[in-house]
Design a protein around this nucleic acid. Structure first.
Lengths: 207, 207
DNA sequence: CTATGTGAATTTATTCACAGCA
DNA sequence: TGCTGTGAATAAATTCACATAG
């Protein structure tokens, strides 16, 4: 492998591969070929191999990939090899669902704190996480929590992000349907549920 | 404008533009320039103009875009000009949040039906939608509902998708963390919350 | 003989620079 | 003059084809 910039799309796919590998391990497989992995995930085998090749390749020619090892390598690349803790801000409908969601664990992610401004919610516990007053967001700094999930109403999203950045957060998963502006060193990924649904009708020819 | 295939990425951005335009209209603006729209959404002005140019261009040189008209045009392209009804399958934590979410309306989308297999949930109402027995999925055909949201546990996702396809559904928003296989005529968009969060640490250099 | 790894070819998407119209 | 619209240039990503290693 020669020096390459890693394509962003490759990074986007790594968690997909990881998911497939963890499933495969669950099913007791020790080895998997790019073909089988690709099929399971709905992508192309050569895409899989190309993606891995950016990191030097993890397989054995003629054989395939060793499932556990590959999963471990990907976790390392994604910096998921040590458990990462995240804070949730906004424990409404969506926030509560996120807090109750069990799918983070497989990636070594843990929702370790939750915040809200609603006094009725503060103090309650969901999934062993006590909901704290959102005015205490600065405590994230000394708690060394650098990831956050924003699930507040749209009009509060930007100032929530500002507080999070001030508290040292460096990665934000944003569920609010708006663009949020942050310093370059902070990475934001926005999920807009309605927008994704809104894109479906385009692909459905007149009916 | 010459004949072009519309890039998929352009389609992906159209709902983003629409969101910006609706916000702009809300704030009382009648016109907007590609520069202002782009800034508001966190994209480049030339990207905005290029995207619109695939459809022939909607603006007036030297002036900008007429907000209402542009929003209407985009809705038409996305086939959101007439209200589209969607069914939700799986009314657990995430499903309930989706059902309670108010953000669909702005795109002319409506969650018009909800299904679950849990007898405790069947019959309950959330947001005026009565939860029906998931064995009644076939009724979607005569109700002319062609969009669906899957929010069931991972291991039920594929067979839920199969039932939906059988019921005539042609667009699926899948919240289950797995690939689901469908006929080519059906479009699936998968949102995997954990996966998106899992991608953040990569962008955060050692700390 | 099998399945990986990777340069090269191709396709797709972004960015630029400026012509064209109000 | 100002901002759109768009070919052309550039960059990025995907696909291919096959050499290579086990």
């Amino acid at each position: 492998m020669r020096y390459h910039r890693i394509p962003d799309e490759t990074i986007r796919r790594l968690p997909v591969y990881l998911r497939g590998l963890l499933s495969s391990a669950e099913q007791g497989h020790e080895r998997i070929s790019s073909k089988d992995l690709a099929e399971f995930l709905g992508v192309n085998p050569w895409q899989v191999r190309k993606d891995f090749s950016y990191f030097g390749g993890f397989g054995t020619r003629g054989v395939g990939y060793e499932v556990d090892n590959l999963a471990r390598q990907i976790k390392k690349i994604l910096r998921l090899d040590i458990v990462k803790r995240a804070a949730l801000v906004g424990v409404g409908n969506l926030g509560s669902a996120v807090l109750a969601y069990s799918g983070f664990r497989m990636y070594g992610l843990e929702i370790a704190a939750a915040f809200d401004i609603n006094p009725k919610r503060i103090g309650r516990k969901i999934n062993d996480v006590r909901i704290e007053d959102a005015s205490k967001l600065q405590t994230l700094k000394r708690r060394k929590i650098e990831l956050a999930i924003i699930a507040v109403p749209r009009d509060d999203a930007q100032k929530t992000a500002d507080s999070l950045v001030k508290a040292g957060v460096r990665g934000i998963l944003n569920f609010s349907p708006c663009y949020i502006s942050v310093p370059k060193k902070v990475k934001v990924i926005t999920i807009d549920i309605a927008m994704d649904l809104a894109r479906l009708p385009y692909y459905i020819p007149a009916g």
